[in-house]
């Protein structure tokens, strides 16, 4: 392998490492909507840990009665899935 191809390999490896790392997008939910979501879950007795997005769905990390929940919502804040970890 020549020096040049080694350098090319290094550049490629770095690029792959950097882009492969976190392909998922983590667009944040607009503040008003996040406040509404937090309010909705707090009223149901949850402690809301964070609100974000995953695969185009709103993702809420919450805790209730010592149990860990990951809850997915659609744009209209309808619960699509609630996973207990």
């Amino acid at each position: 392998m020549t020096t040049r191809s080694l350098i090319a390999t290094l550049a490629l490896a770095l690029a792959l490492g950097a882009t492969g790392a976190r392909a998922e997008d983590e667009a944040s939910v607009e503040p008003a909507k996040e406040a509404q979501i937090r309010d909705m879950f707090v009223k149901q007795g949850y402690e809301v840990r964070s609100v974000g997005t995953e695969d185009g769905k709103i993702e809420v990390y919450a805790v209730k009665d010592g149990k860990l929940y990951e809850i997915y919502l659609d744009e209209n804040l309808k619960v699509l899935e609630s996973e207990e970890d």
Binding site: L6, L14, G17, A18, A21
Partner: peptide, 16 residues
């Protein structure tokens, strides 16, 4: 994890 990935890439190239 990203730092580890960059380190592994550097490690592999350095070993070669």
């Amino acid at each position: 994890v990203t730092w580890a990935e960059i380190s592994v890439a550097v490690h592999v190239v350095a070993v070669i």
